[in-house]
């Protein structure tokens, strides 16, 4: 089965439901848009779940010290 992308894109172009009129921009059908979105978020979530490198904790610790312990917290 060959995929008739032309039709799908044509349909996508007509599906212009955003408030702003973006006449020259093609639009994706919602199914494709969802799949792209899901994949993007999955990739991103994976990055988000990586442990925070120690350098950032250390950086903020150092800054705390440098700024003095005005707040009285140790």
């Amino acid at each position: 089965m060959t995929v008739d992308k032309g039709n799908k894109l044509a349909r996508a172009v007509m599906d212009n439901s955003l408030d702003d009129k973006l006449a020259t921009d093609p639009k994706l059908d919602s199914g494709s848009q969802k799949r792209i979105g899901d994949q993007l978020r999955a990739m991103y979530d994976e990055l988000m779940q990586q442990p925070v490198p120690d350098r950032f904790r250390e950086l903020l610790d150092q800054l705390d010290k440098k700024n003095g312990t005005k707040e009285g917290s140790q």
Partner: peptide, 11 residues
């Protein structure tokens, strides 16, 4: 999105 869809053959 449109470009990604065509690059990834989402259809």
């Amino acid at each position: 999105r449109f470009r990604l869809a065509s690059l990834l053959n989402v259809d």
